[in-house]
Design a protein around this nucleic acid. Structure first.
Lengths: 225, 225
DNA sequence: CCATGGCGTCAAGGTCCCGTCAAGGCACCT
DNA sequence: AGGTGCCTTGACGGGACCTTGACGCCATGG
């Protein structure tokens, strides 16, 4: 089964994570600081890293950078609420997803499964994405919501396409902006707000309470199938 | 099961192919020259064509072009080693794959399966497209709208053909331009505007409010059956 | 408790693209 | 040579789309 590296300086939380992950069939290594994390990542070659940002010896971002220097292993970041800035920096550095403490173990396990599923051998390029509310046909360039064809403007479509091609995955604001508007756009998050709003109005059954185009405040958006 | 058209002028090879394909559950038609191949392709509507390039009456490339004129059926080319140039020309003309003689029957069967798999989810090769307002016969090269034959210029027909071959799918402006006008045309979208307008005037019941030739602003056009 | 920042929503302005018409030029047929 | 399509090209309204600013709301933090 897959090997998971848990990096956390709180022994209680580290143990809880290890027990739960082992109970679901993963092999688990544990490190309690940044140096140990980098050492374990390079020697044990885990298939996934769960990384708590609050470490005693070094910044969590440095750990992510240290791993990304030589590996593409998925990194799942745990962050306390006051570590907002670090969290964004860690995602920018190449982390794949994050969970805010406190969190439910079921949510963590789901994120672990999702990250591993994405990392596994080249998912076939999907041509059609189906949700409970709408269907996106990437090949035909069409969207059907509530049984009716929906007309999208080029920008709306492009934005939806990027989100939908990363199902379940967090997509950073900067990433979306550069993909849809161009490399020189990185901070005009107001564009995102306007177009996400329009997409939800056209696609979500209850736009004020979106179920598929989810906001990750301060970070980005996530498409949930 | 799928119908396969075998085109080969060597009776021994043609028979061997037919026997092996039938043994694997395909329905097989056989043609021994180019004229017969084109006739069989248009009347029997095979799901795959196995085409030997060395034909007595016409160039194999012409056969491919003749088929591609109205159909997207996968074409698998058989070529002798010295027919290298023809093979490339055939692929350029729209053939999907090739096998060099001599070849093993297992390899051919694998290529056949691969070609069919690519073609599926297979729209049955459409030779006639019907909408609420007009009928396009791709084989006969005719259009009937409102009970009357419609005369189309070559460019109009070519444009309509590309759209109609991609029912329900968005076709990009550049794609249309390069397909109809040639590879060096990519940005002269004014051509499209003129000819789309003419097509709508000839085909749509209410040209200002088209129901079948739909504009996707800034992107391309879409044919809706 | 209030202040703050990010988010969602709306409306208005300006720009770009689309549809349409008409004239010129070229090739082919008679 | 003349005539007849057909393709190309320019001009011009009208509409769709993108951008931008303003405002209210909620959650977070002091």
């Amino acid at each position: 089964m897959t090997r998971v590296l848990v990096v956390d300086d709180e022994p209680a939380l580290a143990r809880a994570l290890a027990i739960n992950l082992r109970a679901h069939g993963y092999d688990v290594d544990v490190a309690s600081d940044g140096r140990g994390a980098l050492a374990a990542a390079s020697t044990r070659l885990p298939g996934l890293v769960v990384l708590d940002l609050g470490l005693p010896d070094m910044d969590g971002v440095q750990v992510v950078e240290g791993i990304r220097g030589w590996s593409t292993v998925p990194v799942l970041v745990l962050s306390a609420r006051h570590e907002q800035a670090q969290k964004v920096a860690a995602l920018d550095a190449g982390a794949d997803d994050y969970i805010t403490k406190p969190f439910g173990m079921n949510e963590l396990l789901a994120r672990v499964r999702a990250a591993l599923r994405r990392a596994s051998p080249a998912e076939p390029p999907l041509a059609r994405v189906v949700t409970g509310s709408f269907v996106v046909d990437l090949a035909a360039h069409t969207v059907v919501a509530g049984g009716r064809d929906v007309r999208l403007t080029p920008t709306e479509w492009h934005l939806l396409e990027v989100l939908v091609r990363n199902p379940g995955r967090l997509v950073l604001q900067r990433q979306l902006l550069q993909e849809v508007w161009g490399p020189q756009y990185g901070n005009e998050s107001n564009y995102l707000r306007v177009y996400v709003s329009q997409l939800r109005r056209k696609l979500e059954p209850d736009p004020p309470r979106p179920r598929h185009i989810i906001t990750e405040p301060g970070v980005g958006y996530r498409f949930e199938p």
